[in-house]
Amino acid sequence: MTETLNVTVDRRDGLAVIYTEGYINNQGGEEIAKVAYKLLEEGYKILLLNLAGTKIVNSIGISILIEIIEKMLEIDGKLGFCCLTPTIEKTFHIMGLAQYAPIYSDEASAVAQIRA
């Protein structure tokens, strides 16, 4: 049994939304990182991770998301999250991610606010 993660991207004006579907473990986290770093190379400095399709994450996957946040801070970019389950949001708070990457309830408000 494999719980693979599917990652898709919607490129918009100055902003890219990354959609995930599936389990964010070490492989899933690496897949997101690969996509995020490619977007940085393309010039996108504002990334939004929409986790509506992800119901479970683990600490190894989250540690990779933290590396992406660190990278974004280095280049003066922004990474935000939206559409998290209550448990994933609680876990992000436990791990301290929420201090460095904003969490939005839905994509529309995230897109409106993250550019500000």
Partner: peptide, 24 residues
């Protein structure tokens, strides 16, 4: 310094798992 104050890979991972378990 929190998660951004140091990498949490490697030996930190077990600590993070336990912290999550305690929190949930």
């Amino acid at each position: 310094g929190g998660p951004m104050g140091g990498k949490i890979k490697g030996p930190q991972k077990r600590g993070w798992g336990l912290k999550i378990i305690h929190g949930l």
